[in-house]
Design a protein around this nucleic acid. Structure first.
Lengths: 328, 328
DNA sequence: TGTATGTGTGTAACCGATTACACACACAGA
DNA sequence: TCTGTGTGTGTAATCGGTTACACACATACA
């Protein structure tokens, strides 16, 4: 690997001049610049990011913490973040926290030690105190907090929407599957659904589930054993919805005649389920991009007027809910 | 952030002694060591990885290149790699190459510039020449090559198995969906299927598809418009299989009566499809772990006898294939 | 002619670690 | 007493960049 010294020698100047030429700071004579460019090309010189990072106390790396990379919702978020960052010349270190605080702390340590210049966290841990004394800006993603900037989707609306759509389609005994309630958005989502069901005066039961694949099947079985005559399910996410759908098939239920199901997230796979899953869409990719944009602003030290960006959710009508006549 | 100097001052010794104490190299008096440990604790000192990395020309970072993080097969691989690396104190920089050579090269540059000490690549690019002059070891994952160490699953077997299972279940007009053929494993897979079908003397058609979600639906429609009377589909992966299944439902086909489908990969979602997808399972998580283990050996400079690790695949019988009487 | 300003470049300190080397001291064996 | 060896520690160079500062020179203007 060629170093700046090699370039300086080849171009017949000092390293300072090379550095200035590369970074476009200070004066460099046109002719000198050409010499240097030539030397750089010939040696295929690339500045050593580590050395830069050591001096500047800044790398070009961004940390991204995801709770569970296996849940397709999160790769979608990650893609949004990645694409935006890529366009700005930043790179991502993705950490999979596995919903464990310890792993999350581990990654934060790695991020600090590698001089990341910003962090986006979609962690689901209730406590946020480990984010308090960071030397770089932080954006929370898919969650919110008054103390930190965040990008999230409207859980209240999402829960409400899901409930409303089931009620308007005639469900009488609704099961609300509540995700892990560590985060405000998960609580909002639940609250939205419950509020709506109270108002509509529809019977409902509540069950708390995890978001993960491995356990989804268990929860689905549990659901039907506890509430065998449920006729509407508001799932905690699309993964759980898929498991419920699968279990319903196994039990010989007709969908959406006997049972209607609404998922949450709208992961790419949901359209391929049978019947295709009706769900509340969170704009995951856009959320990722927005989080990245917000972080970039913060890193630039720009004043940001709105530090908590709320994105809308949307009911995606497919076929796990009945058709209704709409008067529009 | 406390530095080694702060620790040295607090402990009343030189930085060299602190460094020796931390790294357990050279002599350090027991009492001195205690003083230093105490100072480290009080200051909450963590060595700066960037400075270390600059001097040692080695970080603790491992690069991982994935072709498409949205395809659930790859997060599964990633988890395997991550878990193994985590246990050895290494961290991952995950790069999503998006099946584009340019992005892949970008990430490789980032990896070099950040002194990664090893690279695992599941890239699908045909050319590998950009891996030739790396200063750190490389392991190919989910692909193979004579020049580089690799961990992959038996494509020949996989293709053969898929074909055999369909043939033994009475398929007469099989459609083989061929993935992108840039990689040897994809070619093997195809060859395995075709060999078996030739041998069995069963009619088959071939269509080349991508592996991606966004295009899966298109290919599914294309399939049935080109070969409307196909009665067996060997899909290029589970994502495509899901799309085919979805399209088959839309066309009112009975599965597995009218049409049998076999996927590839066995991603977690496949069990939740309806009917649950029969598929060829690649042990993704284990592949990831094996790749990590192999890389660690290479990084340690150990002689590795077998640089190309072949893992077995397995037919997972679910319900997109008919039941057969087995005489076992 | 003297001074201010702009241009162009080099020297050397610095970022925070690691380590080669020098040196001091204790103790053992000749 | 002298020498060799093991123990313990500090000084300073080094990794590959960036940049403060000094300095040289050209030009402009009073």
């Amino acid at each position: 690997m060629a170093t700046i010294k090699d370039v300086a020698k080849k171009a017949g100047v000092s390293v300072a001049t090379v550095s200035r030429a590369i970074n476009g700071k200070g004066y460099v004579h046109e002719d000198t610049r050409k010499q240097i460019d030539e030397a750089i090309r010939e040696l295929n010189y690339k500045p050593n990011e580590v050395a830069r990072s050591l001096f500047n106390k800044k790398s070009r790396l961004i940390g991204l913490i995801l709770p569970d990379i296996r849940n397709p919702f999160f790769p979608e978020l990650a893609r949004g973040v990645e694409d935006e960052m890529q366009e700005h010349g930043f790179r991502l270190i993705i950490g999979n926290a596995d919903e464990k605080l310890e792993k999350e702390l581990d990654y934060i340590e790695t991020f600090k030690q590698n001089n990341v210049i910003g962090l986006i966290s979609a962690s689901t841990n209730e406590v946020l105190s480990h984010y308090d004394n960071l030397s770089f800006p932080l954006v929370l993603l898919d969650r919110t907090s008054v103390e930190h900037p965040s990008v999230y989707a409207n859980g209240l609306d999402g829960g409400r929407l899901a409930a409303k759509e089931l009620v308007s389609r005639g469900c009488k005994r609704i099961s609300v599957l509540k995700g892990p309630v560590e985060t405000q958005t998960a609580r909002d989502r639940f609250k939205g659904a419950v509020d709506e069901l109270y108002t509509a005066n529809v019977h409902f039961d509540v069950m708390t589930t995890s978001f993960a694949f491995q356990e989804a099947e268990y929860w689905a079985k549990e659901l039907f054993s506890k509430y065998p005559d449920t006729d509407g399910v508001i799932a905690s996410n699309d993964v759980v919805a898929a498991a419920v759908l699968h279990e319903a098939h196994r039990l010989g239920k007709q969908i959406p005649e006997d049972l209607q199901i609404i998922g949450y997230d709208d992961i790419p796979f949901s359209q391929f389920l049978y019947p295709p899953l009706s769900t509340i869409r969170q704009p995951a990719y856009d959320m990722g991009r927005e989080a990245a944009k917000l972080l970039i602003k913060l890193m630039d030290g720009k004043k940001v007027e709105n530090k908590n960006i709320l994105l809308p959710v949307q009911f995606i009508e497919r076929q796990t809910t009945r058709k209704v006549e709409r008067d529009d």
